[in-house]
Simulated scan of single mutants.
Amino acid sequence: MSTHKGTQNEVGLAGEFHVLAQLLQRGYSAHPTLGNTKGMDILVVDQESGRMLKVEVKTARHALHAPTKRAWWKWPLSSRAEELGCPNLVYCFVHLGEVGVLPRFFLVPSEVVADHCSREHAEWVAASPEGKRELRLSTAIRNFWFYDDANSYENAWDLLERKLAAEPGHG
């Protein structure tokens, strides 16, 4: 077996196809955009109602961190994540982990991601040491993270059903 770990693009595609397989296995009508649509990797369509849901997949080979006793998950995002909080968009964070083991999936409403990234970045900027505030203000990097023992996101596939069943604009 190859020891090649894959480029960032290959890792991202692996995550997208794993999510697509999970969606199809669960009976969703799911369609990959293959990078052709900004802000969404997979389009999920409810065949009965015609409602659509966008899924943005973010994949990391090693997203679990445990520098202290309390383990936490982290995925890097861009500042655009602060602006993408909309009712018909769901993030699926994928932890690829080891080859041959099913990845771990974390489904989070985009509104939660946008709020978290905005709040965390503002707190990080506010805590800037003397002379670092401008540099921190100008960075486009954001991180979405949560503690492993305090998350309700793992395998929350029912979020998709709730979003698809919601009245338009009330995701």
Rank of each mutant, 00 (worst) to 15 (best):
V57Q: 03
L34G: 03
R136H: 15
R51H: 09
F105K: 03
S29P: 00
L84D: 14
V112P: 01
S49Y: 05
T68K: 09
A63S: 13
S110A: 12
G85H: 11
H95G: 04
W75D: 01
D41T: 09
A60D: 06
C117K: 00
L135V: 14
V45P: 06
I141T: 08
L34V: 06
N36E: 10
P103G: 06
P87L: 08
P103T: 05
H31K: 05
L77R: 00
G39W: 03
K38Q: 15
T68W: 00
P109M: 04
G27W: 11
I141Y: 05
C92Y: 00
E130I: 00
S49D: 01
F144H: 03
W72V: 03
A127G: 07
V55N: 11
P109A: 04
D115I: 08
K132R: 15
V55C: 15
V45I: 10
V112F: 04
V57G: 00
L102C: 10
L34H: 14
S79Q: 12
W75P: 01
A66C: 15
P87D: 13
R70G: 05
R104D: 10
E111W: 14
R133D: 02
P87T: 10
A30D: 09
P76A: 06
R26T: 04
T139Q: 11
L135Q: 15
E48N: 13
V57I: 14
Q22N: 13
A30W: 00
G97V: 05
V55W: 14
S138T: 07
V108R: 00
V113L: 11
P109T: 02
K58L: 10
A126R: 14
F105E: 01
R80I: 10
S128L: 05
L34C: 09
T37W: 04
E56C: 00
I42N: 02
N88W: 15
R80H: 08
S138D: 09
L24H: 13
G97I: 05
G50A: 08
